[in-house]
Design a protein around this nucleic acid. Sequence first.
RNA 1: GGAUGGGUGUCGGAGUGGUCUAACGAAACAGUCUUGAAAACUGUCGCCCGGGAAACUGGGCCGUGAGUUCGAAUCUCACCCCAUCCGCCA
Length: 424
Amino acid sequence: MLDIKFIRENKDLIEAGAKKKHLKFDVSELILVDDKRRALLTLTEDKKAEQNKFNEQIIKVTDTAKRGQLIMEMKMVKDDLAKGEEELKEVMKQWQLLMLQVPNIPDMSVPDGDDDTANREHTVWGDIPKFDFPVKDHIELMEKLDMVDLEAGTRIAGFRGYILKNDGALLNYALWQFVMEYFREHKKDYSPMLVPSLVRRETLLGTGYLPQGEDDLYKTQDGEYLAGTAEVSTMSYFSGKLLNESELPQKVIAFSPAFRREAGSHSKDVKGILRVHEFMKFEQVIICEANHETSVKHHEELRENAEEILRALKLPYHVVVNCGGDLGLGQVKKYDIETWVPSQNKYRETHSCSYFHDFQTRRLNIKYKDAEGKAKFTHSLNNTALATPRILIQIVENYQQADGSIKVPEVLQKYMGKAVITRK
RNA sequence: GGAUGGGUGUCGGAGUGGUCUAACGAAACAGUCUUGAAAACUGUCGCCCGGGAAACUGGGCCGUGAGUUCGAAUCUCACCCCAUCCGCCA
């Protein structure tokens, strides 16, 4: 959600932004509706003021006849008011619907393009491993080492189901422990949180996943949703708050299961654990003061944190700047970090790092008092810290050896209790 | 699932039909005092929309929506949410 005043004053910017994001949005229509809204607002307010004046008189007048006449006159005003309010209600409905569709403006540094093929490479790290034996994919590797049972997974959970077992489970636990320790030791300014996945509708509206993303969300018979990321609960933790400037920035490292219907991706990545309906994620969230430079600074920090984790795991990755067409409604700029998958001979997304300015916080009503004591909407940002089981793919494939065994990344060995995963 | 109570500003909390322009307290901010701080005292202190260069000014906001009334934070209804007790259960 953007400020209607800003929208009115920057019609061209919004239009250019929508175009860059390849989203259809008619700003003129919104402004037209807003004109109506303003006119009706003025009208009804004037009528209310009139009514209040009559009221004051009625209290004072003791003469019954006079009083009766005043009440009659007042009724006329009331009728007009009722009509105006009726119209206003209709206009407000349209207005709110349109307001939820206004896209946030992408940053200057966001490249043009239709889809992820136009994303621009930002940095590359690590050497792509060269194998002197036929490369196996994660499914073959993990099944042979009894780390995963996909058949049981689908039998129990349906399409895209999986079960991690033995060293697969241990490797996953090891990654969690590693991430926890990384933040506990090196990023003490991040508060650890365990947040709900089962969430109310407002949390998803507030974070911008609704109304557009309805199809990709699971819903319960009681009307709650299953969130696709811990970002939803973590952001909502701050909703309705008025913080002091001295309390900013608020940094959180949150953990939760995440659920995605993957509607529209039915034919994509159907095998293995790359694209699953249920996964676990450590998510970084930052709430900061409303200042573009501050947002940018924290955006880089979130990206850097994720890169540090991948570098510690010694996984080759690159960072891309997502192009306009690959940005969500609320995002100003997004980096995707993609980590090398040898069997596919390409990088695949493992992290997504975005900032929103006040797009989310306006919807969630997260404010702070600035130096002048004025309440302002904060800015918000988030990035994956690590998502499992997807990252297991990159680990087992990059660390595979000729005999089908898998070396354990050095930083995980103490949690795994072994240096190599071999067949029993 | 059954029963009861409740949602008021940043927070606590009064108010049950008409000076409510929402008391009072706390927090916050500024000042006085002080070597400095604390305390005390004084002052400032909600949000949204409109008009205005500004001082200011009109309107709205007491969970949400509808209704009753000349007039609603206050009465009625519906919905949402919260709390407590009972039941069930991990």
